[in-house]
Design a protein around this nucleic acid. Structure first.
Lengths: 335, 335
DNA sequence: CTGAAAGCGCTAACAT
DNA sequence: ATGTTAGCGCTTTCAG
């Protein structure tokens, strides 16, 4: 790093071979004899040499970079506060690294209308992973139809011209609700915004489970934030009193907001109200009472997302895919 | 995006001017007459044209990319679970975007010994922002001395040859402790690992406040995770009973772990034990009781980090800088 | 104010 | 198994 930056040609001169040989050796091209290759790789390491990615990207027309876009309807609240996002982004990064790809992070470009163009046409990235479907899929659809290689973390059952990888939200909603019913809850609230794609599916699962149990559904539609949940439950309690004995929350953060409202009024969890969240963030285990939740397999989903993106880049056609979910049974729903 | 990718030369031909004119126009070079410039910019937009960043990076030897490295001693637990990290990374991204820079995220390369080389020598990024000092600063120091442009989010009072931006951790520790004392706590525990740079400073602040109050310090040294805190407090209670009436936790997540242990034993917060955390994550406001905490100004710190990196890239010498902190007073410490 | 032309550092046909 | 060489698409000196 101290000596003026070496280039491939310098290294070639040092080794007394041609630039193509060095290039091939460093790229593990099998055309190069093993011992030559190893010798050159050692020389490179010794001189602290790295290929200039700008040059090789220009030449190969590939970046090995994937842009990850956090897509949250300008709902900055959630974007900044939900730990679940970090979990996903972290897992995606790991998955990308595994395939030799790098992660260009963006949480602000979704706003502009030609975000896809921005990343792809400018050769900033080879493909895009969109995290979250948001409320409207129109712009994603448009980008996909324009030929932008992209995959989406979201609800895989949504009809789309691009692959969506995510949990079986319907099943999650159903399992959570059935679990509450099995634990004796009769009047179960759904807490969340069904207008949001993934949450809409959770809501459907909830509705079906409720209807099978011949119970009455009740939706408290709120923004996907703790504070909205807190306010929503508070208001309901003020207006109608304790008219429910179970809550299926659309996310753990939302569940915590509800929990706070309940605790402040000394409504016991799970005795008076049983509660299940969604996401299984770290806090679910550490809250008191601990929060039962639907665990999403973010690690597996991330690997699949990357694999699908790569397949797409290789020209294959790819389908949406569901990853399994699991109910994690903790104190908040146990009675 | 449908027609084969245009290049600068194509656009120049379309407009009947030279490539240099187009290049200058798109880069807002004042040399170009205003009307020519606007005409060309419109043409570019109309044809959905973007400059090929690989080519321009190769030519200019600048990437306008900053690598952000999450540095956490391979302590994956915290890395994946602490919402505070997301907050910082999000803010840094915003700050970078403000300056026309992009964020290359890395949470796994710190492990390799030549991470700095990897990003800088290969021209993947112009500079590096390291988030967190971790337990050892040796490798950061080495990279900085080798001339890698880098800034660190950490404790600004740590002696270093690179600029560190972060909160006044000493003051934070002191304020939190003084606050607990003012609320009547006599036996205040410090919960966290003082071997960690930033936490060490918080600990020093704690010690000074304790000693001024002629109280007795007591450190429970644990990993910076909720579960370690939970176990630590549990064990202490088992072995010595309720031998304390206040806890200064090194982070909010750690505070929540402690809270859980206390609640499970029906020890009242804040009546029996008053509690203050650090970071002021969203959950602090939504927990019950809500958690008093030292709020770090991550937004301001992020902007400063980016400014300092830019100054460094411009060849100026830059110093570490402290950003203000603030005690947010909530229920957990109120009596 | 605009144009011509060189060259950033690499890779991959093509040649041997 | 290795070398020669053209060229990826842009920016910028130099010339006008």
């Amino acid at each position: 790093m101290n000596d003026r930056k070496l280039k491939l040609a310098d290294l070639a001169k040092l080794a007394g071979v041609s630039t193509s040989t060095v290039s091939r050796a460093l790229n593990d091209n099998p055309l190069i004899k093993k011992e030559t290759r190893e010798k050159l790789q050692q020389l490179a390491k010794k001189h602290n040499f790295s290929l200039n990615t700008a040059a090789s990207r220009l030449r190969t027309q590939k970046t090995n970079v994937v842009a990850v876009i956090i897509n949250l309807d300008g709902d900055t609240e959630q974007s900044i506060n939900d730990p679940f996002l970090l979990k996903i982004v972290g897992e995606i990064n790991l998955a990308l690294n595994k395939f030799g790809l790098e992660l260009l992070l963006s949480n602000s470009f979704m706003a502009s209308d030609d975000w896809a163009n921005y990343f792809i046409n400018s050769r900033r990235a080879d493909g895009i992973i969109v995290v979250g479907q948001g409320k409207s899929q129109a712009n994603i659809e448009a980008a996909a139809n324009a030929g932008v290689p992209l995959v989406v973390w979201g609800d895989p059952k949504t009809p789309s011209s691009y692959p969506i990888v995510g949990s079986d939200n319907y099943l999650g909603g159903r399992l959570a609700t059935e679990h509450l019913l099995a634990n004796g809850a009769k009047n179960i609230l759904f807490l969340g915004d069904p207008g949001h794609a993934e949450i809409g599916e959770r809501h459907r699962g909830y509705l079906d489970a409720i209807s099978e149990a011949k119970a009455t559904p009740h939706v408290v539609s709120i923004d996907i934030t703790s504070s909205a949940a807190y306010k929503g439950i508070n208001q309901l309690l003020v207006e109608k009193g304790l008219c429910f004995d179970g809550i299926m929350a659309c996310s753990d953060m939302v569940a915590f907001g509800a929990m706070k409202a309940l605790k402040e009024r000394y409504i016991s969890i799970p005795t008076d109200v049983a509660l299940v969240g969604f996401d299984d963030i770290a806090m679910a285990d550490i809250s008191h009472p601990s929060l039962s939740s639907i665990k999403q397999n973010t690690q597996r989903a991330s690997v699949i997302l990357v694999e699908k993106l790569l397949a797409q880049l290789a020209g294959q056609s790819v389908e949406s895919q569901v990853v399994e979910i699991e109910l994690v049974n903790r104190q908040s729903s146990q009675r």
